[in-house]
């Protein structure tokens, strides 16, 4: 735990303050004020991402710190996109997710930049990571909506946010996997290396593919079993995202490019 006494740190804390304010405003039922604060937070997140980009001189998507910064950047616009599906509760949850993403970026991860190893110099670097990050934000949102549905002990409402979000995010998850395979072929000589991170991302893909099959099997869709599978998919995403850093020393893999 450490405060970041830099411009970047200031922008991260400003983003957090914006989301915190938005959360409070939603809680009081002031939706317009909440949205204005969420907009401010999104702008601050974009400024933080831009500052990092200028600071390190490459698109900041390499270390876990930068990845979380990027996740925070994506959340604002996505929250705007899907708020019609999720309603009032959704906006509160989005603010909470943003704070959960920003907390490790602001207080836990080190912002020290690392020098890129040769394998990361590829035009596929940004599309691969960007597709995955976008997919992760959308699918984790779907997973949380599934968790909320399970807590309510009810079948899905008419709009079925879990399914719609999963269907929005799954193509991006697939794209990330395919771009990664293509890149692996160019960099390592093989499109599939049975690397632990590859296997975790395959697990995530399979769990969501299973969710869609289960969903089409259920009489009206949106049942509790498929919601549980969508929730499991979110857990898999968290493990995939953190795997190299959590277990890197025990199970090093090809994706272990930098420390936490």
């Amino acid at each position: 735990m450490a405060l970041k006494a830099s411009l970047l740190g200031f922008l991260i804390y400003a983003t957090m303050a914006g989301w915190l304010g938005a959360l409070a405003a939603y809680a009081f039922g002031w939706r317009a004020k909440g949205r204005a604060l969420a907009l401010f937070a999104s702008a601050a997140a974009a400024a933080a991402f831009g500052a990092r980009w200028v600071g390190v001189g490459h698109v900041p998507m390499q270390s876990l710190f930068e990845v979380f910064l990027c996740l925070a950047l994506l959340l604002g616009p996505l929250s705007f996109l899907w708020r019609r599906w999720l309603g009032k509760e959704g906006e509160c949850t989005d603010a909470l997710i943003a704070l959960a993403i920003l907390f490790p970026a602001g207080f836990v991860f080190s912002e020290a930049p690392a020098q890129l190893p040769p394998a990361l110099f590829s035009p596929l670097f940004i599309p691969h990571v960007a597709a995955y990050l976008l997919a992760y934000v959308i699918l984790i949102r779907s997973s949380l909506a599934a968790g909320a549905q399970l807590l309510r002990r009810a079948d899905a409402p008419e709009a079925e946010p879990v399914y719609r979000l999963a269907r929005l995010g799954f193509p991006l998850l697939t794209l990330g996997l395919l771009l990664g395979a293509w890149w692996g072929k160019l960099a390592w000589g093989d499109y599939w290396n049975w690397d632990p991170k590859e296997l975790w991302s395959l697990t995530t893909w399979v769990v969501f593919a299973g969710y869609f099959h289960l969903h089409s099997l259920e009489e009206r869709g949106g049942g509790r079993l498929s919601a549980a599978v969508a929730l499991l998919g979110g857990v898999c995403i968290l493990i995939t995202l953190l795997w190299v850093n959590l277990a890197g020393r025990t199970f090093p893999g090809l994706h272990a490019y930098t420390g936490p």
Binding site: N193, W194, D195, P196, K197, L199, W200, L202, T203, V206, V207, A209, G210, H213, L214, S216, L217, W243, F251, G253, L254
Partner: peptide, 25 residues
């Protein structure tokens, strides 16, 4: 077919988690 597919997914997910724990080789 859907159930067979789902069972395959379950087997694949479980073995690939196992594979992630045992290392690439």
């Amino acid at each position: 077919a859907l159930w067979v597919g789902l069972w395959f997914f379950a087997v694949l997910a479980i073995t690939s988690v196992g594979g992630a724990l045992m290392g690439a080789e």
